[in-house]
Write a protein that binds this DNA or RNA. Structure first.
Lengths: 402, 402
DNA sequence: CTATTTCGTCATGGCCGTTTACAAATTAGT
DNA sequence: ACTAATTTGTAAACGGCCATGACGAAATAG
């Protein structure tokens, strides 16, 4: 099953091209590819009306995309209406693929996604990475990457780029991990450690998770708040189909929004930050449990069994989340709030208090809160898809590369 | 003195044009005009290198803009370097003008701004509009508009559009006032009431104030939070040189961010909203004063004289603002926070507590807080400039109009 | 006074989407 | 079954637009 790609308009890169004839051509190639990708299957005439060019122009654009191996002709459509049936076009299932990788505290994962959005190869390995040096970890990851790439190549795919999701803060250069507390990495440039055969992007796993929700989630929302709690509590802000990164790349620090200004002190210097109420440690302490791996499973299991103190701890966390989110919603007026990552698994016990707080504090119709169905797969898929989006946004690059 | 226009890239409208040769031409015309506008005076060759086109292409674009009366030739530049000196180009001081208007609770104002950004005509009238019906108010405003337009036309300017700033919530259609509590207007479509000779835009005065800060402010920041307190407390969020409006147009409701979740109830349904601590009424009550016109002047005067209760009230308001802004800054990581509108005048007494709160609650370098130097003029100037920006973003429209 | 550099313009050329025309393939109507 | 209408995809002519390369003009450097 091919995941539908909701986004229709090219989203950035292609827009930066100079306004010259060549740039125009490149943008139009991207628009054709986007249109077909969004619809799954489309005739030349349908593409033409959809993107506002003439059939003749679209024909030459399609020819070029077919020559590059990015589009395929499926043959005549089943005619439902009068007139000659169009010839269906589809994004090719062979050719460039996006390689996504994820470095977690207790696992490594890699996958390959084709232009259609389908996962075509994957590899996972469970390893305890907490406190382990970057060198060996990335070496092990590289092994998985080579494995996945080999598997993809057997299916006539070639890697168009590598995107790595890490549980920490990443510099805006998209290469160096500034700080990953759970791994104990600081200012580590991953570029020299990874295979340099393809373009590399490194980003926060929460950001990739939010992008996955944008591109693969159920809704078609282009403005939402994606809240996740892997390292701290982060909220990726998606505005008009793009990630808001902030001037220093620090946007989305929901964990340090003040919830009770006179509350307990926080390492950040403030008092009563959200993380003091809904952070991993805080919830465990409130529930009377000791830290260990697979926190989420533990909490969910106990809550399922009816453990009163765990339920109370989660309810209080939901309340705190609701207060912080009320502020965020008032400020940004998003279409929805999406709970992802660890929060998705705990949502049954968080949501009631969270929504009570959110609706109680809003005058008009409250902002709907949904739960991501991507679960823990989000960041990995988002990473792989970010590479695919790059190709969709500027198909001409693959021509230069082959 | 001509105000510098910081923004260089076209910011929206022109980007939506179809990617056809005609659209490309229009975008390039806009880029040339933007380049000259941003620099004040530029030669053809300088424009060419700046926007990435050849000198030949820029020549034809400039010719067209001169023919339309949007650019003027100033003659040869003073040669500082080797080589033939260029011929300086400037944005024309005649031709299209933006007409900005403001409806306040105690005044009406209109001004005309030319393409250079200079105010060329203005008219102000003090009237008590609180609770007055839209009809008579707009009629009086229309009179001022006609006056300003006549004055502008004597200077060889013609109105390219009318933008009206109102103290209330405006629908996304840019025509109807949904709710203006201080005027007691509800769902009023201003379009039929205003002279229909030119394109009309209506928007919240806080939004126009933020845009004025973006276009005319000291900094060149493209990402900031502009906080103002005219009706309630609003924060306009500027991201990448554009206003974040939210899905329903309600973004920026800083006044209802929870500051103390168990605080006093707020009409919005919540408890302890910022407005309960830093809103007009709350500050007056805390200072032991009764509501009347010119709140800001009153408070500033008393604080200046050393009135302890007023100073305490303002300090507490500053603290509450600081708490709410800490949340916003953590979420958005803006370049700066700008205090505008009424807050600018009260900043000497608000800032210390506000900044203490903001720096105390942030780990890294705190987000700098600045005070707008535009003062109460902001919304009016922003409105007029928004029309000018429209011309700069797509100069071809004026050719169709004349 | 000459060589060099830079500016603005002109003619040429190539690229690209549009326009117009036409053949192919299907449905609707008789 | 046959014709008319409709829609699709392609081909050729057209026009617009930017790039290229060359040239004269106007300044500086030596």
């Amino acid at each position: 099953m091919t995941a539908p790609l909701h986004e229709t308009r090219p989203s950035g890169a292609a827009r930066a091209l100079p306004d010259t004839q060549r740039g125009m051509r490149r943008r139009n190639l991207a628009r054709v590819l986007h249109a077909v990708s969004a619809e799954g299957s489309l005739s030349r005439a349908a593409v033409a009306t959809r993107i506002g060019l003439t059939r003749a122009a679209v024909s030459t654009l399609v020819d070029e995309l077919i020559r590059w191996g990015l589009l395929e002709e499926l043959g005549p459509e089943r005619p439902g209406r009068v007139g000659r049936p169009g010839s269906a076009l589809t994004v090719s299932g062979r050719g460039p693929a996006g390689i996504g990788a994820e470095i977690g505290v207790d696992h490594l994962a890699v996958c390959a996604v084709d232009l259609r959005g389908a996962v075509r190869a994957r590899a996972v390995r469970h390893t305890a990475n907490r406190g382990r040096a970057p060198g060996p970890v990335v070496e092990e990851l590289t092994e998985l990457v080579r494995q996945v790439v080999a598997e993809a190549e057997r299916e006539a795919l070639w890697p168009a780029g590598l995107a790595v999701a890490v549980p920490g803060l990443v510099a805006r250069d998209g290469r160096t991990v500034v700080r990953a507390p759970n791994l104990d990495w600081h200012d580590t440039d991953l570029d020299p450690l990874l295979p340099g055969d393809w373009p590399l992007t490194v980003d926060n796993e929460a950001n990739f998770g939010a992008l996955a929700e944008l591109w693969l989630g159920d809704g078609t929302a282009r403005d939402f708040l994606h809240v996740s709690a892997e390292i701290g509590i982060g909220a990726a802000v998606v505005v008009d189909g793009g990630l808001l990164r902030g001037t220093r790349g620090f946007a989305g620090e929901l964990g340090h929004v003040p919830v009770r200004p006179d509350g307990p002190p926080c390492p950040c210097g403030g008092r009563g930050c959200l993380e003091q109420y809904a952070g991993e440690e805080a919830v465990l302490r409130a529930a009377g449990l000791k830290p260990r791996e697979d926190m989420v499973g533990l909490l969910a299991g106990r809550a399922e069994q009816g453990d009163a103190s765990v339920r109370a701890a989660l309810r209080d966390a939901g309340t705190a989340l609701g207060i912080a989110l009320t502020g965020a919603v008032n400020l940004l007026d998003p279409e929805t709030v999406v709970l992802g990552g660890a929060l998705a698994g705990l949502s049954p016990w968080l949501l009631p208090a969270l929504e009570a707080e959110l609706t109680g504090r809003t005058a008009g119709p409250p902002c709907p809160v949904t739960v991501s169905r991507l679960g823990p797969e989000g960041p990995l898929l988002g990473a792989a898809h970010s590479v695919v989006r790059g190709v969709l946004d500027d198909p001409a690059v693959v021509a230069e590369r082959s």
